[in-house]
Nucleic acid binder design. Structure first.
Lengths: 220, 220
DNA sequence: TTTATTCATCACATTTTTGTTATAATATAG
DNA sequence: CTATATTATAACAAAAATGTGATGAATAAA
């Protein structure tokens, strides 16, 4: 995941870079718009953090030119809120913006949000080699599609959204079967059984908690 | 839970230290930034209370350097509100701040809030190295998972929620076994035995009270 | 309608947990 | 210190909970 940080102030660039690198992003720097454009021409970035106020070529113009080359998500940095009021009229495809003074933590959070959105990972739940993509209604293990029955799918989804939390059979029944299900508790057991079978090596992440129910626990 | 207090004024350090120690935190002191950095290199702290205005190296710079070594939550102390206005632009990961003159109680409250948040301990019962996470239905000793039988788990949970309180066998029976249990009193003894075994070094916190029953008593 | 899937329940196997007993260890009162 | 009351421990059989495969009913698909 590579990010380009464009700002004329080296201090700001450094702070941003350090924070992003701490989150395992790879970061390049550019001191002005032209340098940024050159870099975009030669390398692929997943996101650009771009300051508006820059001496030679402002963030505005820079973005225009970059968007002609490649469609890369952009987070804009502005010195003051007012600068944005100008900006908003010119929707050039800004994905997000942050006003200075900004907290690097906030910036990192926004970067993460955008890269996720961009890579369509919003509705994916990932636990090691097991992924559930709710939008696609797909479950994969090592990128290989796993077909589950509807109940199994709902059950797995419930486990993943509540991973680390012990769920009683009753909770699972009301959550998945509905509050008006008056059947046997042990129906859950059967579905857990088949779900475990279908999940193969990942089946073991569904732990049995005696006298309580089940729990999805990845790692340990 | 270890805390490092960094301030050039010994008086402030002492006040903070005393208050934190009253809440069973372990506290180290540093009189300047370099001393603090040295300590961070050698020891593990859960939180740092850091004064901004210090003669040789200010809190700012100190924090920058500390964050390069380890990611430890920081509470900043400033003399006046205005100092923060400068600071906020360069938020390098401050978790909270307190302006002087501050109430020690408030500081302690913030310290507690942050350490809890940081260790995700909102719903955990913690007694030294023993933790019970009821949501996850998990018991750990020194972060190592301990497997208990259902009755042992219930028993421990009952002891922890009523720590410091003597519980008769009858109370335990009605609480855990149910009011309609007509078995032997001695049943409790057996389960206390196995529970103690499973708790290892923490087993000794379950005290026997002759002629009465048992009590969970954690002492520092 | 026919066919295929999915589902809920049952019955039995397997595993874990539990209560009791008998006996040893320990504390307390006299 | 001794006798007695009380608790700790170990072993084991009974009970309970869960895993599993089979089956017919229900549902959806063709």
């Amino acid at each position: 995941m590579k990010i380009l940080v464009v700002d004329d102030e080296a201090l700001i660039r450094n702070v941003v870079k350090e924070y992003l690198e701490a989150e395992h992003f790879k970061v390049d720097e550019a001191g002005d718009g032209d340098e940024a454009i050159k870099l975009v021409n030669n390398k692929d970035y997943d996101l650009i953090v771009l300051d508006i106020m820059m001496p030679k070529k402002d963030g505005f113009q820079t973005m225009k030119e970059i968007k002609k080359i490649k469609n890369i998500p952009v987070i804009m940095l502005s010195a003051r809120q007012e600068e944005f009021d100008k900006l908003i009229g010119f929707d050039l495809g800004i994905d997000d913006y942050v006003t200075k003074p900004f907290s690097p933590k906030e910036l990192v959070a926004r970067v993460k949000a955008i890269t996720k959105r961009y890579h369509n990972e919003e509705d994916k739940m990932i636990f090691g080699s097991l992924t559930l993509d709710d939008k696609a209604h797909e479950v994969r293990i090592d990128d290989k599609l796993v077909t589950l029955t509807p109940k199994e799918y709902d059950l797995l989804k419930c486990f993943l959204t509540n991973h680390h939390i012990a769920l009683s059979r009753e909770q699972l029944l009301t959550n998945i079967w509905g509050y008006d299900f008056y059947g046997d508790d042990r129906t859950v057991d059967t579905h857990v059984k088949t779900l475990r079978q279908h999940l193969g090596k990942c089946g073991k992440y569904i732990k049995t908690i005696r006298k309580v129910g089940y729990k999805f626990e990845y790692e340990d």
